[in-house]
Amino acid sequence: MNFSILIFLFVAVLTTFAALVVVTNKNLVSAAMWLIVALFGAALTFVLLEATYIAVVQVVVYIGAIAVLIVFTIMLTRRSAEKEPSGATKQWPIAAVLSLALFSGLTYFYLTVPGTDRLAPVLDKELNMVSALGQLLVSPSGYVLPFELASVLLLAALIGSIVVAWRK
């Protein structure tokens, strides 16, 4: 058995378990902590796929920004965190149907798309993935339009937050 498969199994089980705890745990802060574990597991999966850039960005964006923001928000609203919420809300059947549909859709996709049973080709060590990704993001034949659209969206969000916080 390959050593990397062993690591992958460990990471996959850990990520799935952490994700399960996130949705079942009644304590909001504990759920947020387990969310961080799940996000870190996703980053480790990217490392196993040799996508180091995506892995590091996953940590920077999701753990460094989003998870910290979530934990901070929960702390600021500590009174609601102290009370034990009843757990599932009334919308859980809809959520269950939706996530089941997503899961079966992904499984169907995985089974029908050709080439998913083959092993990934070994990457060239000399290949600079980061600069290749950068070139692809800003080249007109690549993804320059989505990239610029995302930039405009972020700028709009920035201006929006300034307008909201503006002292009259």
Binding site: I36, Y53, V56, V60, I63, G64, V130
Partner: peptide, 17 residues
């Protein structure tokens, strides 16, 4: 690693956590 600078930034965020 070829993402060294980004790695340093990413690890630093664990300190806040």
């Amino acid at each position: 690693v070829n993402v060294g600078v980004l790695y340093i930034v990413a690890i630093g965020s664990f300190g806040i956590l």
